[in-house]
Design a protein around this nucleic acid. Sequence first.
DNA 1: AAGCTTCACAACCGCCTCGTA
DNA 2: TTACGAGGCGGTTGTGAAGCT
Length: 262
Amino acid sequence: MGRAPCCDKTKVKRGPWSPEEDNILKNYVQQHGTSGSWIALPLKAGLKRCGKSCRLRWLNYLRPNIKHGGFTEEEDHTILALYHNIGTRWSVIASQLPGRTDNDIKNYWNTKLKKKLSPPPTAAATYLHSRYDSILPNFPVASQVPLPRLMEVPAENVENGPYDPYFVTNVSPSISSNANGSSTSTTTTTTTTNNMSWSTNGSVEDEAFLVDLGSELFPYDDHLNGFGDLYSNFGYSSDVPNVCNVSDEHEQQSMMYPSVRY
DNA sequence: AAGCTTCACAACCGCCTCGTA
DNA sequence: TTACGAGGCGGTTGTGAAGCT
């Protein structure tokens, strides 16, 4: 048996609020406050609405000093920074942006910022895509399957894990694949974390791994989903691996698409 | 001009947390 | 200590507007 609903859905109005309803709610809250109970408010105010709906309407639209749309560059940066640090805790993010509501920020994120954040495919991703196409040349959608965002990091950093990709600030991989399928590469990586920084110059084979930034720690979840589907299409677990050793050609081929290394 | 698709955002749903009796 | 109910929250859906073919 599920939880009892907060109100009788058959007796309350749903859908968009009319200007009249907005006025009633606004006037009532301004005169009486919520009287400590949103559930009881619609009856007292004379609204045929669910208490939760009234609360949402007030918080997201009617209360004073609400700002809608027109997010500034500065607000974008704040949202992005907070998203990286705390994830989808929209109410916490909203608390740092005066006049903004969690719903507004959530919508803005889902429709604009998420796309803005997605970088072009990395050289590593391009390389893996080409490898995949070469293994299954006739697979019709191979080149259209979303790739995870891959980034190279030194083995020591991965193996000392858990690896936190949030703090990778600049990676410049250069990978090429030759005719026989082997890869050569040179990588310059500069990473900054809260309290340390390091850089490497060397071959991927020696000291770099690819890290799938579509892991649950990173916000490119739509790429992760695409990756998971790709795996399941070929009978692999939907548990998406997040680390791949670039140098292990044999293992890569046996898995068709990047191998699992933990 | 009409039909279709995409986008933006308001609103809803249902789970979780927290206060209180 | 426990059970219950209201509020809070994030994910998802619905809908109208705008853009495209």
